[in-house]
Nucleic acid binder design. Sequence first.
DNA 1: ATGGTTGGGGTCCAA
Length: 267
Amino acid sequence: MTSLTVATWNINSVRLRLESVLRFLSEAAPDVLCLQEIKTEDANFPGAAFTQAGYPYQAVKGMKAYNGVAILSRLPLTRTHTLEVCARQDSRHIAAEVAGFELHNLYVPAGGDIPDPEQNEKFAHKLRFLDEVTDWFARNRSADHPMMLVGDLNIAPLEQDVWSHKKLLDVVSHTPIEVARMAAWQNGLSWVDAVRHFVPADQKLYSWWSYRAKDWDLADKGRRLDHIWVTPPLKDRLHGADILRPWRGIEKASDHVPVLVRLTVPA
DNA sequence: ATGGTTGGGGTCCAA
């Protein structure tokens, strides 16, 4: 058995932050990196730079200006596919087989500001998106299938996944309605929250801090929006997880930081 | 209670 590291990072423009991604690959040395919000068409994805950095296996689903996801890997990626959730071609999902399991990389819609699907079409879309992916996994996969699901899910489900549970109950990303949707999705295939597997639920954990704070680090009003889940066959192979807060403090930082897990895989 | 910042594309939308 050997160890595999899989990381996920909402990069908020892969072209603007290319040098940061390359430094992350060099310093954290993940075997696989899943990116969200690459904000570029496939033709402009800086794939050659990643190949040169030792990540020749790549799966990219981009679009102009918005969204976009990609998987970079040291190991071969096979059976790559994408889902068009809510019949929109908005590049929010890509999946591939790697190291003997199926890896899904997702960027869930943020959902706008008003936490009411009647008044806010973006929030309605977010809820439909969650229902549709839940249904897709229920129909097409089972809990005994070795899978990992990563990405910016734009929901902070636990009380200690936000800086103030009380103050954020009406804030999109932590409302009971979307937290319930996420629980249904997670319970459907008995997905295990791989980060909380190592960190007790009463301990604060954030992966995102707003750009709008005067001092993000001092105020520390974060939320855990970025997640890594595994199905039961991978659960006992997990041996570590990290949320890399220091990446929020670099020059021209993304508002999200990398999240990673380590697991053993057959040699 | 309000407005605060960022990215991409093109003089505004999404987060």
